[in-house]
Structures are given as C-alpha cells and as structure tokens.
C-alpha cells in the first residue's frame, strides 16, 4: 500500500510541475521543449519495447505508425474539427490518431504474423516505406512538402498525461494475463501454443497496443512541432526509436524510460559538437552493445514497475533468440 502512495504522490508532483513549469516559466523554452520531446520519446520507446522486447519480434516500422497517427490527428485539428472549440478537441484528435495507427497495425499484423523474425522485420519495413511514399503522393495533405499550419496544442500537461497513461497501460498489459502470454511467446512460441496461449490473438493484440501508442506519440509530435512531412517519419526515425529501446534494455519498461531519457539528453548535450555528434551517438551505441549487449537495464526492471506478487522470472542468461 505504501508503494502506491509514493507513486501517487510522485505522479501528482509531476502533474503539478508540468502545469507550473510553462505557467511560471520555471525553465527556459528550450528546456521545456526538450522535456516535451522526452515525453514523446518515452511513449515511442515503451511501445516499441512491447513488440521488440516483450514479444521478442523485430519490428522496424514504428515510424510508419507514428506517421499515421501524426497525419490522422493533424488532419482532424487542421481541417475537420472547429478551431478554438471545446477542450475535447485535442484529446479527441490524439485518440483518433492512436486508433488510426492501431487499425493500421491490425492490417499489418494479420499478414505479418504468418511469419516470424527477420521476415516480420521486412514486412514492417516495407509497410513504413509504403506509408511514407503514400503520404508523399497525397496532395491533400501537402504531399512531399508536408502539412503546415498545425496548432501548437501539445502542452506540457497533456504530454505528461499521455506519457503516464501509455507507460501505465503498457506496464499493466505486460503484467496481465495476456501479457504473460506475450512473454511466453518470446521465450518459446511452440511451447506457449501448447500451453494454451492463443499466440495469434496475443501477438495481434500486443502489436495493436504498441501501434496505438506510436500513433498517440505521432499526434503529440505533430502538435508540438506544428509541421509534419513524410520525410520526418523515414527510416532514420525508426532507427532513433530502436536505439532508445536497445540502449535502455529490451523487455524492461524502466529501461525504455532510461533509454529515451539518455538518448534525448545526450542528443542535446552533444549538440555543440555539430556533425561529430552524429558520429558519437552511434559509436556509443556500438560500444554499449559490445560491453552490455542487453542494454542498460537488460530484462530487469525498477521494482516499482513490478507487481507486488512477483512470478519467478527466468534468469537473463537463458534468454534465446
């Protein structure tokens, strides 16, 4: 019980801060923007970790889902919903972005999960490229020039709320009954099926949840940057998210948060180095993989992300794939 109080208090403090920081300008705008991108990155990393870490698949299409969510929500606020209307407009747009991404996730998942491993990678990769070039060919959303004139609706409290919500949902999913099925599939798909896990349904469900939050992150991103173009969501974006996930550690919610934070902070700290920054970041990643191949957290998690009654986990050394 004690733990729940601490978490509740921390969340309350976070919510208060996220309201107070922009209100009283406690931080300069640059730091505020960095914090907001950090929140979006946490959502992206946690949701990709659900597929790549917990489910043990290798998806490289996360930027594609992000693009679907970003465009869907931006089209809603720019073209369809009345400007300046009620307060429900922005959450509705973000929800719609998430749902659009989840539906796309379903469309991809049904054929994609007929295969496993590297072939899933290629199907998701092809999907991401299809999304990008489809967007480039739709003139109604600006084609390759991108979509301009998006309002800056992503404020710090909203991003804080969505970050907490996505971490909370994904964490609860992982430790729920179907979530145990997800872990079972990662450890051994055949054995999981023999033990009565409906592998197909569990995989599709996990994939849809992950793409939903990728879409949410995309929507928040669009309303923070106030400009989106197909180029933003290319393969480099996916690589960034992959780096966050594997930097922090696969199969670990805390790891995704640590990874996204380190990635965002390092990227900002190394900015004075100019182009060399872009050499040093991947170099750090390679060194990390060489000396700590499972990332910083590597299948472990902070105790406060774990349920109170813990099932015995297999030691990390025996993890296959």
């Amino acid at each position: 019980m004690n733990r729940h109080w601490t978490i509740g208090l921390l969340l309350l403090a976070g919510a208060a801060l996220s309201w107070a920081i922009p209100r009283y300008e406690l931080l300069n705008p640059y730091l505020q923007a960095t914090l907001m991108y950090l929140g979006i990155n946490i959502i992206l990393a946690t949701s990709l970790n659900l597929i790549n870490g917990y489910l043990g698949e290798f998806s490289v299409g996360h930027a594609g889902f992000m693009a679907v969510g970003a465009y869907a929500s931006a089209i809603l606020t720019v073209m369809l919903l009345p400007v300046g209307a009620a307060a429900w407009r922005f959450p509705l747009a973000i929800m719609a972005g998430g749902c659009a991404a989840a539906l796309t996730g379903l469309v991809v998942a049904i054929p994609a999960f007929r295969t496993r491993g590297d072939y899933l990678a290629i199907v998701t990769l092809a999907f991401a490229m299809i999304v990008k070039s489809a967007l480039e060919n739709i003139n109604a959303v600006g084609g390759p020039r991108g979509l301009l004139g998006i309002e800056g609706l992503s404020t710090m409290p909203w991003i804080f709320a969505w970050t907490v919500l996505s971490v909370w949902v994904i964490r609860n999913f992982v430790y729920s009954n179907p979530g145990r099925g997800v872990l079972a599939i990662r450890e051994d798909e055949v054995a999981a099926e023999l033990m009565g896990v409906n592998t197909r349904r569990v995989k599709i469900r996990a994939f849809m949840i992950a793409s939903f939050f990728a879409g949410v992150a995309g929507g928040l991103f669009a309303h923070l940057l106030q400009f989106i173009s197909p180029r933003i969501f290319d393969i480099t974006k996916t690589t960034d998210i992959l780096v966050m996930v594997y930097l922090g550690g696969v199969g670990s919610i805390g790891g995704s948060i640590v990874g996204a934070s380190m990635f965002t902070v390092l990227q900002e700290c190394l900015r004075p180095l100019g182009v060399w920054r872009m050499v040093i970041m991947p170099l750090l990643l390679v060194l990390l993989m060489l000396f700590r191949p499972r990332g910083i957290m590597g299948l472990r998690d902070f105790p406060w992300f774990r349920p109170s009654v813990e099932c015995p986990q297999r030691p990390p050394e025996t993890h296959p794939s």
Binding site: L285, M289, L290, R294, S321
Partner: peptide
Amino acid sequence: PRVSAVITALGVGL
C-alpha cells in the same frame, strides 16, 4: 542475442 548484433550493425551503419 542476435538482436544485439543487428543493433550494432545499425549503429555501425549510422
């Protein structure tokens, strides 16, 4: 794990 090598490859490429 095989994925570590794949991520390393992505890093080397970048």
